[in-house]
Design a protein around this nucleic acid. Structure first.
Lengths: 222, 222
DNA sequence: ACCTGAACACCGTTCAAGT
DNA sequence: ACCTGAACACCGTTCAAGT
């Protein structure tokens, strides 16, 4: 048994192993650099071996997405519904930050997959129990989900841009180029804008705005 | 003068022409199918001709994004600030719906570009005039922007999935597969969820939640 | 400066074939 | 069923060269 990489030229290829290895590669070298040929090489098989388990690359992406969505924590019991909503949204955000590829996977292909439905089930259940009617519960779920998706995707992109030196230089250059006459507010608020492009505090700020709007709706039902 | 396609094997290649042609191709055949080689062919030049005007593909993407952001309408004057915020957010969403590639361009690469700054300037100016302090204005701007981005990207993805028959079949199959015991709420709210995956009403619902939270903040300053 | 042509190191996927 | 090997039709980008 050679102590090399995760290699299985044996007969032991499985959907689970492929998905886990694909996830490892995406996290290690970034989502864009991921390729079926690279994955096959990592597994020690030919590229076509993967097509026995997945119809194509998108099909594999869906499986990886669903695999990750299974890690979203469940709804905490015995808590006020706003706290339950907060917990689910924060859990999804945290998972996206831990696995940046999830952001791109969610943004590029719609739901499908039972694990995605599990997350929706949790959030919708909370909203229904809180007394929202069907339509409002559905609307609120979509709103919360798209907010988490948008806010966290943006946060990840900005963090990546700051991480690589080329991108950081580009950001500084763009800011320095803006004329204070044409863009007075942007220039004046540059420090604040830089500070609020991510982080727990920024995420909670937007989430609390949504929750404040919701609670107001509960108090004054139409 | 042959009445062929947009071809310029002449000496008349320019950044503007390249960007406009790239945009046309992205809208015609989708963002993923776009390639530098295809763009060069459409322009009647070799692939390397483009590298005189853009350093690489990402550089061209940035130019296309900035070109589109220039089309975001300005802030309407003489209106209450919530209406001004609504107008900017709706304008950005409308532009993303008209040019679906903009969603992916915004999601895949951070700001940079003067036209993006112009939009930020408009929104930040409104918020500052409404009396928000620097920090809150910046936080609110980020929140609104990421909400518009997330909600509209999701809407576009779902619309695309419904558009192609393969995707539509996949959506129906996923829904039909969910067991009512395991996912009671999702199954029960299937019609509502399907109805609230897009549209002006859904977008405004989330936007109004944010604005309600904001106005409450104005009334009760910390 | 502006553009070409050949070449490099890749892709996802099909197809026919092996076991 | 599970996997291989060769092939097809592509990519973005570099490099040397032309004008």
């Amino acid at each position: 048994m050679p102590a090399g990489r995760t290699r299985t030229p044996r007969n032991t290829l499985s959907p689970e192993l492929i998905v886990r290895t694909a996830l490892d590669l995406m996290e290690a070298q970034g989502n864009d650099a991921f390729s079926l040929r690279g994955l096959a090489a990592e597994l020690g098989v030919g590229p076509m071996a993967l097509y026995t388990y997945f119809r194509n690359k998108d099909d594999l992406y869906d499986a990886v997405r669903d695999h990750l969505m299974a890690l979203v924590p469940g709804v905490p019991e015995d808590a006020p519904w706003p706290d339950q909503v907060r917990a689910v949204c924060r859990g999804l955000r945290r998972l996206m930050l831990q696995h940046p590829c999830l952001a791109q996977l969610l943004a590029s292909r719609p739901l499908s997959g039972h694990e995605t439905a599990r997350v929706a089930e949790g959030l919708l259940g909370v909203l229904r129990s809180a007394g929202f009617d069907k339509e409002t519960a559905a609307r609120t779920h979509t709103t919360l989900f798209t907010y988490v998706l948008g806010a966290t995707s943006w946060e990840i992109q900005m963090a990546a841009e700051r991480g690589n030196p080329e991108g950081w230089r580009r950001l500084r250059t763009t800011m320095a180029t803006l004329s204070p006459e044409e863009f007075p507010t942007v220039v004046e608020l540059a420090p604040e804008l830089s500070r609020t492009t991510g982080g727990d505090e920024q995420f909670d700020y937007g989430l609390d705005l949504l929750l404040a709007g919701l609670q107001q709706q509960v108090r004054t039902p139409s």
